[in-house]
């Protein structure tokens, strides 16, 4: 029974995870969007602390040191050399420490964003004014028409990382998946990539985030995350249709 359950879980996680598990190494596919959300909270906290300290000091001083009679002058003490240097060096180091803290945290998540899992499903995305075309490994290709709402757009199986290999036929576009917290530009003459981990079945969207002319606002597509079985059926049907 236990074996059956674990087998089910493994299929859910996808074959590579199963293989990795079998090989004794526990390699879970990371979820960059979740890491992003986590980091976002850390960063917000950091900003709140700095912001509150400064704002509180500023507002308090503005209130406390308001002039009470005309002709009054300020009584700020003159900084001696040591305290002047101290007030420059200490904050500089505090800021620098915070910078490096944030840079290190950001870098960790960034590596997740750029290290594409080996088992990722590859889809080729071609942007052109003003739609996206998706091409799967086996030659199946789809497009979503914004005006008629026809076409499937990007369809991916749940639980399997997806890497998009992207280029553009005309101007600079940017493939922005708000729900997966990722975007990357695409342009003629170069290939760029991004990957995401569709952890939940459902429908979301991708939209263009780099100004591309008249119908920029309308350059979006459906992104459907379906179960592996549904995906297989869909792709088989597509293949027949094509």
């Amino acid at each position: 029974m236990k074996r059956a359950v674990s087998a089910l879980v493994l299929t859910g996680l996808g074959l590579p995870a199963a293989l990795a598990d079998a090989a004794g190494a526990k390699v879970a596919v990371p979820d960059p969007a979740a890491s992003w959300n986590h980091l976002w909270h850390d960063v917000l906290l950091d900003l709140f602390i700095i912001g509150i300290i400064f704002l509180a000091a500023g507002l308090y001083w503005v209130w406390k040191y308001r002039a009470t009679r005309p002709g009054q002058i300020g009584t700020a003490p003159k900084l001696d050399k040591i305290s002047a240097i101290g007030f420059a060096v200490v904050p500089a180091f505090l800021f620098m420490a915070d910078d490096f803290y944030l840079a290190a945290k950001g870098w960790t998540v960034w590596n997740e964003y750029r290290d594409v899992p080996r088992n990722a499903m590859e889809v080729k995305v071609t942007g052109s004014m003003w739609s996206w075309n998706f091409e799967y490994d086996n030659g199946v290709s789809t497009t979503f028409m914004v005006d008629t709402k026809e076409g499937d757009g990007l369809v991916v199986p749940v639980g399997k990382p997806v890497v998009l290999r992207m280029t553009s036929t005309d101007v600079v576009h940017s493939f922005f998946l708000p729900d997966y917290r990722v975007k990357e530009d695409m342009m003629p003459g170069r290939v760029t990539y991004l990957w995401f981990n569709p952890v939940k079945v459902g429908e979301t969207l991708a939209t263009c985030a780099e100004f591309c002319g008249n119908r920029h606002s309308f350059m979006w597509t459906k992104v459907k995350v379906v179960s592996q079985a549904d995906f297989d059926t869909w792709i088989a049907k597509k293949k027949q249709g094509a």
């Binding site: 500023g58 001083w61 040191y65 009470t68 002058i73 009584t75 700020a76 003490p77």
Partner: peptide, 10 residues
């Protein structure tokens, strides 16, 4: 910010 400290603000 520090310029306000112990000032006499109009």
């Amino acid at each position: 910010f520090g310029t306000l400290y112990k000032g006499s603000i109009t």
